[in-house]
Design a protein around this nucleic acid. Structure first.
Length: 638
RNA sequence: GCCCCGGUAGCUCAGCUCGGUCAGAGCGGCCGCCUCGUAAGCGGCAGGUCGCGGGUUCGAAUCCCGCCCGGGGCUCCA
């Protein structure tokens, strides 16, 4: 007998020869896993198998299969409605699935998509059994040739196996590795999300495909929650919120794409962030440096960036010498280091700069503040001895966590990118350097008790790195901090120090940007808080609202007290009704309102209203200041 | 860069299919009235090279071409 593990932890037994699906309660699973290999539920239990694990929608693999089958249903629906559409590929993706078709360049209209979605529901209702077949590759090629599916034939050509699998459901058939759900009826709630064009195999020289994205769920509530979350994300879009709250704008048709102008309210937030960063870095032993925005391109020739990076650089000529706007700060920081000979006694040296760089990103990848052409890195380069590397890395991680927590983020994901041990020749530096460095990074992470994923082969050619992603208020992940070792630049620039033994040694260099880019971080922060910045960052912390003209005098007195206390406050003179001005303040996301009417003038108190909470009562002005004193100022000054 | 979609008042958008009172609405702005107690008081006024350039036409926001800018997408491998 074979042991079966159910998703709910239950156990069953099955006889060899029996179909898995017949051995388990109906509807309990989506797909089975045998020796870490996914198989159809409709496959038979074979002899000699120890254990079969049944997966449902709660597992990643279960979801992937669910969505993969959904993509086949989409393809079937499209073939029913547009019989001359040619099938491309249709995988499950992180969230949902897509299928792409060659429709001779004709795109799907919203009405088409609606019809496709309805046809998909029909196919679900038909509950067609999904059947796996294994056939010889050459037969498969004839088969797909006959069905007029040139892309499938092309894919087949590249498959090396002699036997391939195809899946059938009703009149539909697809080349597919599988596995799939037992029948189309397993898909309960589905939705087409959007369509767009793409290239066959992502190559712009290939034919244009029309790609349709969709999502599906076993329960209605999850679908609704998912759609709500998408709406939520749309509502938080920093590209809408930014101009709406008068924080920044990107008048690209006037100044060019990917560039930001900061309005007063955005600029003050940015300045508060930057001041905070500078203070904290100084406290953590970094030295502040500045470097120019342009330099001879030769500088980047020395660094080796030019050959690889040239297309991303703004290059121009002056007096016959080629200059470039800096796309990165590292060479300058190296020059600071190299301005004189360094002794091991002064290491580690940590140079910090809010360095504004410009990179000519391809127009298609630009996305508001999140991907701009001009942006400011919270950049630092640490020069250290190999002996101190682990300690330095540990400190950087600690600083990173402090910074991110200060901005209200609580959940992080850490990735350690290492080299591919199979191809040491593709990397700069000796095997010894790499192994030692990688284990330094790993020890630092372990000492910090971080869970981390090792991404083997993901390191850059010049060194391993640690990436930190954060999770925002609606569960989205953002790649933020990067801590990167560099074996390359110290050699190219001959970055050395005199060690205790009198010998000149090459320093180890760490690049690190913790918020990454101030612009991008600002965009993430804006979306995370939906514009409701924590008090210490709010551009206007307190607004004073006199009820009528006769209260303006008292309101001015209060404004002065707040000004003197260093609180960012303004006064909304008594124009229009109180209700109107409150609404304006709420929409403008002003966190605290002080309302001054007859009662307050009389008592000398202030009526406090907190955004989103409403009136919280009258208190003395002094008490009010006391209550919020800490929240008004940056975390490091509390 | 390439493909699809889009660009009309500061903002959101209608008008474009079938060229001719099609230059509109709401919000915002400004001016007046109202002096007001916790998310929109009332009235009036101003505001647009219909993204830019060219073409077709007696006539173009509307049709055609080019350009600029924006949005989505461009393997997460049958």
């Amino acid at each position: 007998m074979v042991r079966i593990l159910l998703p709910d932890g239950g156990r069953l037994e099955a006889r060899p020869g029996e179909r898995i699906i017949d051995a388990i309660p109906k509807g309990l699973g989506l797909v089975a896993k045998i020796n870490s290999q996914l198989v159809d539920l409709t496959s038979q239990v074979s002899e000699g198998v120890d254990e079969i694990i049944i997966l449902n929608f709660n597992s990643r693999e279960g979801r992937q299969v669910y969505w993969h089958t959904s993509s086949h249903i989409m393809a079937q629906a499209v073939k029913r409605l547009f019989s001359n559409a040619k099938l491309g590929i249709g995988p499950a993706i992180d969230e949902g699935f897509f299928y792409e078709f060659d429709t001779s360049g004709k795109s799907f209209s919203p009405e088409d998509l609606e019809r496709i979605e309805n046809e998909m529901r029909n196919i679900v209702k038909e509950d067609l059994p999904i059947v796996r077949e294994e056939i010889r590759k050459d037969n498969a090629m004839v088969l797909f040739e006959k069905r007029g599916e040139p892309y499938k034939v092309e894919l087949l050509k590249e498959i090396e196996d002699k036997i391939v699998s195809i899946y059938r459901q009703g009149e539909f058939m697809d080349l597919c590795r599988g596995p799939h759900l037992p029948s189309t009826g397993y898909i309960k709630y589905l939705k087409i999300l959007y369509a767009s064009s793409s290239y066959w195999r992502g190559n712009e020289r290939n034919p244009v495909m029309q790609r349709i994205y969709g999502i599906s769920f076993p329960r209605k509530e999850i679908l609704e929650e998912y759609l709500k979350r998408r709406e939520e994300a749309k509502r938080r879009d920093h590209r809408i919120l930014g101009p709406q709250l008068d924080l920044f704008s990107m008048p690209s048709e006037i100044i060019g794409p990917g560039l930001v102008i900061w309005h007063p309210k955005g600029a003050i937030i940015r300045r508060i962030i930057e001041d905070f960063l500078v203070r904290v870095h100084l406290k953590w032993g970094y030295k502040l440096v500045y470097s120019p925005h342009i330099a001879y391109t030769n500088l980047w020739k020395t660094s080796g960036h030019l050959s690889y990076y040239r297309d991303f650089m703004y290059v121009f000529d002056k007096e016959g010498i080629e200059h470039a706007v800096k796309p990165m700060n590292c060479p300058f920081h190296i020059l600071v280091y190299k301005s004189r000979r360094r002794s091991y006694r002064e290491l580690p040296l940590r140079f910090f700069e809010l360095g504004t760089v410009y990179r000519y990103e391809r127009s298609g990848v630009l996305h508001g503040l999140l991907r701009a052409r001009g942006f400011t890195q919270d950049d630092a380069h640490i020069f250290t001895t190999p002996e101190d590397l682990e300690k330095e890395i540990y400190n950087v991680i600690e600083l990173d966590e402090y910074l991110l927590r200060s901005f209200g983020f609580k959940e992080f994901k850490v990735e350690l990118s290492t080299w591919d041990p199979g191809h040491p020749e593709e990397y700069m530096g000796s095997e010894e350097d790499w192994l030692r460095a990688q284990s330094s990074l790993e020890r630092a992470l372990r000492k910090k008790r971080y869970d981390y994923d090792i991404m083997e082969g993901e390191a850059a050619f010049y060194g391993p790195k640690i990436d930190v992603k954060l999770v925002d208020s609606i569960g989205r992940e953002w790649q933020l901090s990067t801590i990167q070792l560099d074996f390359n630049l110290p050699k190219r620039f001959n970055v050395t120090y005199v060690d205790a033994d009198g010998n000149e040694k090459t320093a180890v260099m760490i690049h690190r940007a913790l918020l990454g880019s101030i612009e991008r971080f600002f965009g993430i922060l804006l979306e995370h808080y939906e514009g409701n910045f924590p008090l210490w960052l709010a551009p206007i912390q307190v607004r004073i609202l006199p009820v009528a003209d006769r209260h303006v005098g008292r309101a001015r007195e209060i404004l002065q007290v707040l000004d003197e206390a260093g609180v960012r406050a303004d006064l909304d003179e008594a124009r229009g009704t109180l209700g109107y001005r409150i609404r304006e303040a709420e929409l403008g996301k002003v966190p605290l309102l002080l309302i001054i009417g007859d009662r307050e003038v009389e008592s000398g108190k202030v009526a406090v209203r907190r955004k989103g909470e409403g009136n919280i009562g009258d208190i003395e002005l002094k008490e009010f200041l006391n209550a919020y004193r800490k929240d008004f100022i940056p975390p490091d000054m509390r």
